[in-house]
Design a protein around this nucleic acid. Structure first.
Length: 645
RNA sequence: GCCAGCAUAGCUCAGUUGGCCAGAGCAGCUGAUUUGUAAUCAGCCGGUCGGGGGUUCGAAUCCCUCUGCUGGCUCCA
């Protein structure tokens, strides 16, 4: 007998070799019907796998992420089976579960396939699912495994097997399909009741651009048709928050073929919004001891040779611009740091001056591959809220604290809460990959970890993710479609001070090397605005929104009173407008709601007589009447709450 | 850059297997209406159907090519 401990702490004895599904059956029939996989001593395994020793057992169902993963992984196999039946002779790469569903990379050979084939494949998948195919695990030797796929002629699987150790290879068979697979899988296919193939894409074998491109098919499955429907509706909702759509609707930015791909045009409303962000940060930075600098949009090729960027990125950049007479070469500036290093070098520095913080809203240009461009989040020209801090190794910690405070202020001002913070440190096994002394690295890494601790940041530490020139801390936010975008960043750099031979004179009257910290709270204004739009669905915080208040006179008779209200509000620094069209009030309200204007002021006879305004809040409705000053006070309080905390 | 798809009026979209001067709603303009919490009515304007080439008696529709966009892959100082 063995002792099984359930998550609630209860223990029970079972015969050796019992499986999780059988245990579930003894607890309740309903539970047994829902078990997709099991977690035994922390390891997820098939629910049908025998348990031979005392163990902690957690039964995994659709409610558990790991249950979903098993379901989707099994769905990938099922899709592969369906495809193999429909298109005999295709070869398979890998087919894992992912965050939302699964994919399979397939070499379709001479078959031409597109999303038009999806319904056919979906139908086949559901047909096979109904057969209640069991997922059968089989341990095979390396030789057997190789023989099977040699016979099948699947070179991709053979390549995968080559990297595996004999004795650790398992196959899973379901229906007509056998796959090299570690598992785990759901007990059988009947759980798969709804399927939707989402998209088709090319994917390089093993992510290697130089190798063959396979066809990747993404799909998702559910145990109930209703859940699929809900999922698709959720996606539709997310699409409405897409910054590209809202940006067009609210006339914030645009693109033009004539200007060029990935080169955004900021329309007046968007430009003003962006300026408000810039002004806000400038004010915060001034308080924090930053000094403004301004540098040109191009730089001599030698500047980038000194920085080392030319050697690394020269080939993948926009081609240099040449002066017509001398033939001197200039690059569009891909980053601001080399320029700022040159500013540091203009005069000698004493340790007493440090830290020196140069800030610039610097517009940079990078050649991004055409297929990568995406709205404002991935562009070829963008403006960084860049700054470079030159300090001593001992000052790194305080500087990190200062930057984190700035980032927090900004994120609070725009109500960002779902922020993911990643600390990227050295790979401890490969110290030779990194520039700079061990001592300095240790100091910086320790400082960053301490800061994260002290600031109570919920940070993930990743070893081996640091740049070769220094450790960093990145701030990431998810967009409407769940994609993660990096916004702010703080990076320590030991490399550029070296390459530019930056020095300061220490208390010992000797030359010393400063440390450089790159930091950008927004990251880029473009990406920040994009993520902000998706985060708030176009309903910007009051301090940022293009028009804060729209005055809606009931008829032309009250136009004059509306103008009086407008003037008063403008005196309170409120951005207001009048909708003086000869339309019905309902129509004006509707249009203002669609434009997402936070406050609507309805003014007619009553209001004019009492010197008041009727206030309607966007998405909320009628708030009642207020005096003009009283209303202005409400607006200013709401603005100050976010930006003066 | 690679794979797949898409491109019709300022915007959102219709246009059946190639066949009468290419349509609608919204926006815009003009006029009427003077309006109380999510769409007042009427008229008008607006399109070399993304560009170029080809097949055909005839192309928005079929083929080739270029450009751009969308979703992935690769990349990201």
């Amino acid at each position: 007998m063995i002792v099984i401990t359930l998550p609630d702490g209860s223990k029970k004895k079972y015969p050796k070799g019992i499986n999780s599904l059988e245990i579930a059956g003894q607890i309740s029939e309903g539970l047994a019907r829902n078990v997709l996989a099991a977690k035994v001593n922390g390891k997820v395994i098939d629910a049908t796998m025998p348990i031979n020793e005392d163990a902690d057992l957690q039964l995994l169902t659709w409610k558990d992420d790991e249950g979903k993963a098993a379901m989707w992984h099994s769905s990938a196999h099922l899709m592969a089976e369906a495809i193999e039946l429909l298109y005999p002779g295709v070869k398979f790469g890998i087919g894992p579960d992912i965050e939302n569903g699964f994919y399979y990379d397939i070499d379709f050979g001479d078959y031409e396939i597109s999303d038009k084939d999806f319904p056919k494949i979906e139908k086949k998948i559901l047909e096979l699912a109904k057969e209640k195919q069991k997922f059968q695990r089989k341990e095979v030797s390396k030789k057997e495994a190789e023989e099977y796929f040699t016979k099948k002629g699947d070179e991709y699987k053979l390549e995968l097997i080559k990297d595996l150790n004999d004795g650790e290879i398992t196959f899973y068979q379901s229906g007509h399909f056998t796959d090299l697979c570690r598992g785990p899988h759901i007990p059988d296919t009947h759980f798969i009741k709804a399927v939707k193939l989402m998209k088709i894409a090319g994917a390089y074998w093993r992510g290697d651009e130089s190798r063959k491109q396979l066809t990747r098919i993404y799909g998702i499955t559910f145990p109930k048709q209703k859940e699929l429907k809900e999922y698709l509706e959720k996606l539709e909702e997310a699409k409405k928050r897409d910054h590209r759509i809202i940006g067009k609707e609210l006339e914030l930015f645009a693109f033009s073929q004539n200007v060029g791909q990935g080169l955004p045009l900021w329309l007046p409303k968007g430009a003003e919004l962006r300026e408000r962000l810039e002004q806000f940060l400038k004010k915060v930075q001034k308080e924090a001891g930053y000094q403004p600098v301004i540098t040109p949009h191009i730089g001599n090729v030698n500047l980038y040779k000194t920085s080392g960027h030319y050697q690394k990125y020269g080939e993948e950049s926009f081609k240099p611009i040449k002066t017509p007479v001398e033939g001197e070469e200039f690059f569009l500036k891909p980053m601001n740091c080399p320029h700022h290093c040159e500013i540091f070098k203009v005069s000698p520095h004493s340790y007493k001056e440090l830290p020196i913080r140069y800030a610039e809203f610097g517009t940079v240009y990078r050649y991004e591959q055409s297929g990568e461009l995406h709205g404002l989040t991935r562009v070829r020209g963008f403006t960084q809220d860049d700054a470079h801090i030159f300090c001593t190794p001992d000052q790194i910690k305080d500087e990190f604290i200062g930057v984190i405070d700035i980032i927090n202020r900004i994120f609070n001002a725009v109500n960002f809460s779902d922020v993911i913070i990643q600390i990227s440190l050295r790979d401890p096994d490969k110290p030779e990959k990194y520039i700079g002394s061990d001592e300095n690295w240790e100091k910086a890494e320790k400082a960053i970890k301490e800061v994260a601790e002290e600031k109570g940041l919920n940070a993930i530490v990743e070893y081996g993710e640091a740049a070769f020139y220094g450790p960093k801390m990145d701030f990431m936010v998810r967009d409407a479609l769940g994609r993660k975008w990096q916004l702010g960043t703080i990076q320590v750099d030991y490399n550029l001070p070296e390459r530019f031979d930056l020095t300061y004179i220490g208390a010992d009257n000797e030359k010393h090397r400063p440390v450089m910290i790159h930091r950008a709270p927004f990251g880029s204004l473009e990406r920040f605005v994009a993520v902000l739009i998706e985060h708030c669905g176009g309903n910007f915080p009051l301090w940022l929104t293009p028009t804060q208040v729209i005055i809606l006179p009931i008829s032309e008779k009250y136009q004059q009173y509306a103008e009086k209200v407008l003037t008063l509000l403008q005196n309170f620094n409120i951005r207001a407008d009048i909708d003086g069209r000869s339309e019905k009030t309902g129509r004006k309200i509707r249009d203002a709601e669609l434009k997402k204007i936070p406050y609507m002021l309805i003014v007619g006879e009553k209001e004019e007589t009492n010197n008041e305004v009727s206030v309607r809040r966007h998405r909320e409705g009628d708030l009642g009447t207020f005096s003009i000053e009283g209303f202005a006070d409400i607006v200013n309080k709401e603005v100050n709450k976010l930006i003066n905390q």
